[in-house]
Simulated assay, not measured.
Amino acid sequence: MNIESNVLDEQNVLRLSLYACSGFVLLALGFALLTGSDSILFDGIYSLIAFFMALLTLKVANLAERPDDERFHFGYTAMEPTLNLFKSLIVIATCVFAVVAGVNRLRAGGNPANYGIAVIYGALATIGCFAVAWRMHQRNRQFRSDLVGTDAKNWFVDGLLSSSILIGFAGAWLLERSAFSEYAPIVDPVMLITMSLLVLPIPTMILISSLKEVIHQAPAATVVDEIEQRLLESLIGVSYDHVEFRVRKRGRDLYLLVHIVVSDSFTRETISQLDDIRRHSQKEMQRWSPAIVMDILFVRDRQLAD
């Protein structure tokens, strides 16, 4: 599959997320008015945030495909982890606010809601969110986009929210018809607190992962080890004493800065011959991972590589 096709597929999937977000915002806010439920209102606010984030994601996906220019000498791919970092912070802040609101509502005696109608919302939202998350995950397996992957995780989170609403409201509906009906009003704030706490680990993990890219931390040791193995294989036939390389993940790109400390028996004499080595090595590395971007420098003094 060529790069142009991957870009088109990525943007089509992001548009799917955008359209689904707009539909879920209307669905959640409408049912929140009908039921008076804080949990559904939170779900609607979460979807509204996701809608605006989807707009930003689509814009960043377009920017990430631009070549470097006078303003951004290394291209626009660094915007991807920055956006994911921003999105995760927004979700974390929303969850914390929801926990505080749930605690306050609980201290006030709870929140009576129309649980029968809320169950209908829970069923529709759960099916819809998990369907969108599954579809985005399946499509992303074809082109490995961080933006699509993060959006798929967000939809999965929204599905967890909706499924907890469905289970909680079904229980509350049964509770209203039992001898313990006086406890039904506390179900809504308890669910709001529970949902928010269950959701927090996912944006927190996205935050940590994105922060590592923003501060240029090297990828996992297993990834670096595999890169080293494949890099050295691509340099078979080159006489060198040492190869020093540095790796950083920059959005969809995996950037390698390689210093080759040539040996005394190194016989290349022209720039064209050095370029042949660069082209061959980059071709072999990109055959393994098309996301790789490389700069290769040839030095004789090892201190210049350290």
Rank of each mutant, 00 (worst) to 15 (best):
K153T: 11
N154M: 15
N154A: 13
W155S: 01
W155L: 01
W155G: 07
W155E: 03
F156A: 09
V157P: 01
V157Y: 06
V157E: 10
D158T: 10
D158K: 14
D158N: 15
G159V: 06
L160C: 08
L160K: 09
L161R: 15
L161G: 15
L161S: 15
S163N: 14
S164A: 12
I165E: 08
L166W: 07
I167R: 05
I167S: 03
G168K: 06
G168R: 01
F169N: 00
A170L: 10
A170V: 13
A170G: 07
G171H: 06
L174Q: 09
L175Q: 05
L175A: 08
E176H: 12
E176G: 13
R177F: 10
R177L: 10
S178I: 10
A179W: 13
A179I: 11
A179Q: 13
F180V: 12
S181V: 12
E182T: 09
E182C: 12
Y183K: 13
Y183V: 12
A184M: 04
A184E: 04
P185D: 02
P185Y: 04
P185T: 04
V187R: 04
V187W: 02
V187N: 00
D188F: 00
D188R: 06
D188V: 02
D188Y: 02
D188L: 01
M191N: 08
M191C: 07
I193R: 00
T194N: 10
T194A: 14
T194H: 09
M195K: 07
S196V: 08
S196L: 01
L197F: 06
L198I: 14
V199Y: 08
V199H: 01
L200H: 06
L200D: 11
L200M: 13
P201C: 03
P201L: 05
I202Y: 00
P203S: 14
T204H: 12
M205V: 15
M205L: 15
L207H: 07
L207D: 12
L207W: 05
I208G: 10
I208T: 11
I208H: 12
S209N: 15
S209W: 15
S210H: 02
S210P: 04
S210V: 00
L211F: 05
K212Q: 05
E213S: 02
I215V: 01
H216C: 07
H216L: 09
H216R: 13
Q217H: 07
Q217L: 10
A218Y: 00
A218K: 01
A218Q: 04
P219V: 02
P219L: 00
A220Y: 05
A221T: 14
T222Q: 15
